[in-house]
Design a protein around this nucleic acid. Structure first.
Lengths: 342, 342
DNA sequence: CCCCCTATGGAAAGCGCTTTCTGGCCGTTA
DNA sequence: TAACGGCCAGAAAGCGCTTTCCATAGGGGG
């Protein structure tokens, strides 16, 4: 018996001398069963090391124990830290996580949502910025809406436009503003921004908040001072290089993510510029590694793991009413040694 | 029709005016079907946006499109980089990846394998060092063996003992030795080692290779020079602190992973010691970030993404004969600025 | 003492798909 | 012309589970 490929509920029922129905009821606690039989079934199940077949359960209508998570790239510390939070909460609730990396291809994201839907995942989490592309947004919504109508839960981290779903929103705009204020307070007056692709909502928010606050303070930031690049370490390096080639006039560079800031620091080092003596650099996110850089990075710190935890919790708890819930997550400016006085 | 929660094969068959069997045959290419019917089924399927229910397929005996991966912690750059490789290959083959983090609890790993098995995942990948604990090893084998007998594929990265499965083995022992040699060549004679938990095979191999090579060269390394700590950044910090409190006599510190080395660098910085002027530090793995540290870290570079890719490929390709395959992956010593002349 | 109601276990339907088994309609061959 | 073999499409079984619907037994009330 032990050596059969798969122990089925029928085996358990037979061993316990009860019917399938009874065995099922005992194992799921669905209905009252005489204590004696309950005990027999329990023992049989554990002796046979019975594990229910989730596919059969899914087919029979029970919610699946695997939630889906779609992010841009697991190997990016931002996503892997958020994913960590997701997985902890998932693990605590006995759930597995199906994690997909889109490698930043928007349509791959939709393809994954479709696969996850087909899998009948009870919940889908979308981590990371959305794209500002109407066609794409419609296609995604077309995939998500029927899914939700069918009882699927959806929660997103860090995107908002046009998606009627529960979401966890880090304070991107306010963060950008707070950082601008803090840098101005340090005495800086000439800024440059290393931005990610404009199509990402996160980028628009962070840069927007940063710029608006500067404008409010009377410090100008022209479009020329904003360089767009890939949302990666190498993107940051490239953008910083462009800036340097142009003849850097800014005394402080704001990279919209810490990952890009790391690239920027490398570019500066390679050109022999000192941070913060020659240029100050600030990032955004507070991924774990930035404490250990030299100099440690000034940044807008977001509780990354918490973003993931909240999203998972959102997807786990019933929502009442049709309104989508929004959890705004605050952050704080952390001044470290990468920024000096302006 | 479009608005039904789920379009089933029956809907497609009905729309095309054929039987379920025929529809299934067309969609799977299982058997010849008259071209005209084929066409009708195809069109019906695409018009209804039909997506097969993987659970029903699984139940009916078709292999699942989701492979399972178990690692210690996604947010550790080592694992997330390896996972990246896995996911790329998986994505290229139209597979989803179910990723689980054990948070370094050995028995959680077994629990996950059990869940993955129950899911009927066609393949399971175990990433990261195993534990040297006979009871645990037996329990894991007891879970894996029936799975493989039932046709499940298993591949592991970085562990070997007592598991008869296909594996990808980075040259941990040789790497430790090569690093020892390189450091001795730089002139170092007094070493200390920041080791992870001894129960991890990876640790044993790396430290073993390192120590054996030193002994061969006539350089002593006593047990007192080896400090054991958590396999994390903070573990590295703690171990380095212990060493410093004891009064560091070594001129070169070898941390068995880059992540621990990062912690060690932080501890040294906090104590006001300069690297490499006062102490040299070397790591192992070459996770992406170490290039960007100050000073950049000397390390034994492993092609991390490739480890994941190879493992995924191993699990994807049929193996002939009962022998388990082993792919040894070489690495190379990369000397950077964190090590000076001894 | 009988009837009805409740508590509990079993039989069976059904989830959506694959695949074997059957049977009808051809074209062949003797 | 009759018998036979091939090819294809449909019917139906079965994957493992949940859940509804019944049947039965036991207890309480009339």
């Amino acid at each position: 018996m032990r050596d059969r490929i798969h122990v089925t509920l029928e085996d358990v029922a037979k061993a316990a001398g009860v019917s399938l129905a009874t065995a099922s009821r005992v194992l799921n606690g669905t209905a009252r069963v005489r204590p004696e039989l309950t005990e027999r079934v329990r023992r049989a199940a554990s002796e046979l090391a019975y594990t229910p077949n989730p596919h059969a359960q899914a087919l029979a209508g029970t919610p699946r124990p695997t939630v889906g998570v779609v992010c841009h790239d697991v190997s990016d510390p931002y996503f892997s830290t958020v994913a960590r939070g997701v997985m902890r909460v998932a693990g605590d609730n006995g759930l597995l996580v199906t994690l997909a990396s889109t490698f930043r291809d928007p349509y791959r994201e939709i393809a994954y949502v479709s696969m996850l839907r087909a899998q009948r995942a009870p919940a889908i989490l979308l981590i990371g910025s959305g794209f500002e592309d109407p066609a794409w947004e419609r296609a995604l919504a077309a995939e998500l809406e029927p899914y939700m109508r069918g009882g699927g839960r959806v929660a997103v981290v860090s995107r908002h436009r046009s998606l009627r779903v529960d979401s966890v929103l880090p304070e991107n705009r306010a963060g950008g503003a707070a950082l601008a204020r803090a840098l101005v307070d340090l005495g800086h007056r000439r800024f440059a921004v290393l931005a990610g692709p404009r199509a990402l909502t996160t980028v628009a928010d962070r840069v927007g908040g940063f710029r608006d606050e500067l404008v409010k303070t009377g410090v100008p930031l022209s479009d020329d001072d904003i360089v767009e690049a890939e949302f990666t370490r190498d993107g940051g390096y490239a953008a910083m290089t462009v800036l340097l080639d142009r003849g850097l006039s800014a005394g402080c560079v704001f990279a919209v993510t810490d990952v890009m800031a790391i690239g920027a620091l490398a570019a500066l080092r390679d050109r022999g510029l000192r941070v913060p003596a020659d240029v100050s650099v600030a990032g955004f996110d507070d991924i774990p590694i930035v404490r250990d850089l030299t100099p440690p990075l000034t940044t807008f710190a977001l509780p990354l793991e918490r973003l993931g935890e909240e999203a998972m919790r959102l997807a786990l708890t019933e929502r009442r009413g049709p309104r989508n819930r929004v959890i705004r997550v605050a952050g704080e400016v952390v001044i470290r040694a990468s920024t000096g006085r302006g």
